[in-house]
Design a protein around this nucleic acid. Structure first.
Lengths: 221, 221
DNA sequence: GCAAAAGTGTTCCAGATACACCCATGT
DNA sequence: ACATGGGTGTATCTGGAACACTTTTGC
């Protein structure tokens, strides 16, 4: 038992994990194995240890529940409405993460908990206030496309310009002109040719590019 | 005494309060009356009651400690590094607030605690990690000038275009062309003439304007 | 009449948009 | 040879930046 002179809330992190797959923006959810909301889908996350930082806790939970590591993680917002958890007062610091479409190496479902990717267009009912969290993360992601290089976080080590353009088209839900997109993205000077090519069909091979500074999301104007 | 099966952190809110005064961006600080950091300047804020929402708690603490009410308040970031408070693990949800330069009606210093406005250029040493919080709030404010109408929150009910321009110049620390500024701000269609004029010296009177929707910060492109 | 801040238009430049054809390959 | 996606340039539009003089008032 832990005792305090004043009441303390519980503290959790939740992580909204996006990827691009099957030409759709997808979200990773976990089916809850226990009460409350047993059998409902929820964001991965859990209680923060008191000897670890918030982001450390978020990364640990993410790794434990999904096997995902080394991702771009950004704090989204802190949700702490009274009553958002029926058991006790729980404050959750929400993060969001983007992972490359091919880096999907999900941990085998550990303790009979199901894990699944869901299209943003057909989300199931979610536990707690996770719908609100997901909506805010989605909005943030969309907004950041316009003024940062955040979308590069969806790319593998090497990618073609068409693949990159497709990511933008999927998130923004609109077609982009190929020549204008290439002019724009190359002018950012954030990606460079690898010198290699990708051949995957009866057509001209595509040049492969890499992100020059993959660990940093640049703010662009 | 409050008992929990698992360890819980303490939860506070801190508020970064900006205003414009004497042609400078100013910050409201409170001198700490108790340990730790006794005698150091710190952000207003305090512990969140478990039956109140986070923003409600922030507003309550702000009102109690400074008398300031009805301000634009926005969640900034949540700080929770291990060891940021020497007593126990404390998570703080930081907010920032902007108040009109004339609405400064500070509560008389209640319990021997001093309250003061400080220029952003000459901040004293701050308690805890409050310097980091202030820096992030300042950065956020500056960034938001570019793509939102957040600066209107600094204005009184009625103001002149020169006064509004001065606010931008103070925050951005650069001169702005008068004609371009007026063209830009009027094109936003977020302010309107009141029909009244302000006369305050040996020169042509200035038209007074008001914000059309003062409670909403618009995102602009 | 003079000092002081308010108010007002046009030109220029850069970055975004619209738009269509040739290239390299696998089968 | 043909089907498929990769790759490229120019003209136009639009919003931002630069820039100087007249107006109205108080003293």
């Amino acid at each position: 038992m832990y005792q305090y002179k004043y009441p303390h809330p519980a503290l959790t992190t939740d992580v909204v994990i996006f990827t691009i797959r099957d030409k759709e923006l997808k979200l990773l959810l976990i089916m809850r194995g226990g009460e409350p909301y047993k059998g409902k889908w929820a964001l991965p996350g859990g209680f923060v240890n008191l000897d670890e930082d918030l982001e450390t806790g978020a990364r640990r939970e993410l790794e434990e529940e999904t096997g995902i590591q080394d991702v771009y993680l950004e704090q989204l917002y802190t949700f702490g409405a009274v009553g958002r958890d029926p058991r006790e007062r729980v404050i959750t610091v929400a993060y969001y993460a983007l992972i490359p479409s091919d880096q999907i190496q999900l941990r085998a479902a550990t303790d009979a908990e199901a894990v699944g990717w869901f299209s943003m267009n057909e989300l199931p009912e979610l536990a707690f206030d996770h719908k609100t969290i997901v909506e805010m993360a989605h909005q943030r992601l969309t907004a950041k496309l316009d003024y940062s290089t955040i979308a590069f976080q969806f790319m593998s080590d090497e990618f073609t310009l068409s693949e990159l353009q497709e990511v933008y088209e999927i998130i923004l839900q609109e077609d982009i002109d190929k020549r204008n997109f290439r002019k724009w993205v190359l002018a950012l000077e954030q990606i460079e040719e690898t010198g290699k090519e990708k051949r995957d069909g009866p057509h001209r091979p595509a040049k492969l590019y890499r992100v020059i500074n993959p660990d940093k999301v640049e703010i662009i104007k």
